[in-house]
Design a protein around this nucleic acid. Structure first.
Lengths: 213, 213
DNA sequence: AAAAAATTGTCAAATTTTTATCAATAAATT
DNA sequence: AATTTATTGATAAAAATTTGACAATTTTTT
């Protein structure tokens, strides 16, 4: 089905999906590549070519059917599944992620939150009890989560990743500063390096300031 | 000084910086493009070309001096400044960002946190009092923050952005689902679309699963 | 001090990504 | 029912990005 799909295309899919869901909510049932391009600040050509990696979802003279296209993209991304997920680290960030993210709408099923600091263990977060990291092995053997969200400090990451891989974890949504590349180059990981983003923001602000003196 | 620097290069700079700071911490004072490439999973050629956009920081036969190079990149990114920043939204995410991020090490000075829900107003977060959104105008006129971190719901974003722009805010670190493109195409914004990232992660897991049956 | 090894910065080639073009076809209009 | 308009999917062209190659130069070794 899918042609040779580049990472650039994949990275754009969630944004397409976001816009399409928004259209659906607003009762817009039809959109042309040109119309979408204008809203998104892209070229119509790029949108058509992106979508065509996965199939001809449009119709000449008409455009794209919004609900149909959003369904197709959801299918491509795989967000209609329920992949078991656990969070490691119930600090500020871990708790915020667990309450803030709609895991269930985005392909996952959050089934456990683990924390090293015993003081936090037992607290309820988003309807789930914070569990002691000491029970991680047993929990994983029982409930077989497939992915882990890393909200732990950088220096605890390597040990945790090694342990989790042994327990059958297949991928990581990584909020830690740890870089998988060196030791785990082939493990599926999606990084959210907030510090990198903040630095990029810093550069943008500086650049904007310099160009608008 | 800087040649025509592409966005691709800029996006890689924070990661270079992260690795260099790590080297410094570990007492590594010298690194070649080849050595760095191996650690980072890039090509030596790319690293040399990236750095050369900003100047010849290396030395033939020797490589790059780690502290010097990290200083240079910090300078390029502008993280040695202290740009005044406020956070809008003291929900789970806003509070997590304010406590979790080292704003001071990354070019910013967090001076205020604002929240609509009066129940939260007055709480202390990371040494700062959560202020009522009703005092935003006055605060901005007094303290002149230059950037805002948006941790508010999508449907409150547009109004807030309009207000903040009038108050002199120059850029946004945007955690909301709101997309600036349509209404504010020229405003400096760095998006952290966590949902997009989670969807991308979902795709990666699915793809990995399909290739490793 | 000379020779060998290491490594950069630059230029050119290769590859990837984006954009433009256009025939084909469906929808809308007359 | 015929004509015009809109719009896709595909192909080709253009632009951007990445990689390879190598002279120049410094460091290290002998």
């Amino acid at each position: 089905m899918a042609k040779n799909v580049s990472q650039s295309v994949i990275k754009r899919l969630p944004r397409y999906y976001r816009f399409l869901i928004d259209f659906e909510k607003n009762g817009i049932s039809r959109i042309s590549s040109g119309g979408l391009a204008e809203k998104m600040g892209l070229t119509a050509s790029q949108i058509r070519q992106d979508l065509n990696c996965f199939g001809g979802f449009g119709q000449q003279g008409y455009g794209y059917n919004v609900p149909e296209l959003s369904r197709e993209i959801a299918e491509i991304l795989g967000i209609n599944r329920r992949v078991g997920a656990i969070i490691l680290g119930a600090g500020n960030l871990g708790r915020a992620i667990s309450t803030h993210m709609s895991f269930e709408k985005l392909g996952f099923n959050l089934i456990g939150i683990f924390e090293k600091k015993e003081a936090i263990v037992g607290q309820m977060v988003n309807g789930l009890p914070v569990r002691s990291i000491s029970g991680l092995d047993e929990f994983c053997r029982s409930y077989k989560p497939q992915v882990a969200v890393l909200c732990i400090p950088q220096d605890e990451a390597e040990k945790a990743i090694t342990q989790l891989l042994k327990l059958g974890i297949k991928g990581f949504w990584n909020f830690s500063h740890y870089d998988f590349n060196e030791k785990f180059p082939d493990v599926p990981v999606e990084n959210v390096h907030l510090s990198d983003s903040l630095m990029t923001f810093c550069y943008k602000i500086k650049e904007y300031g310099e160009n608008n003196k």
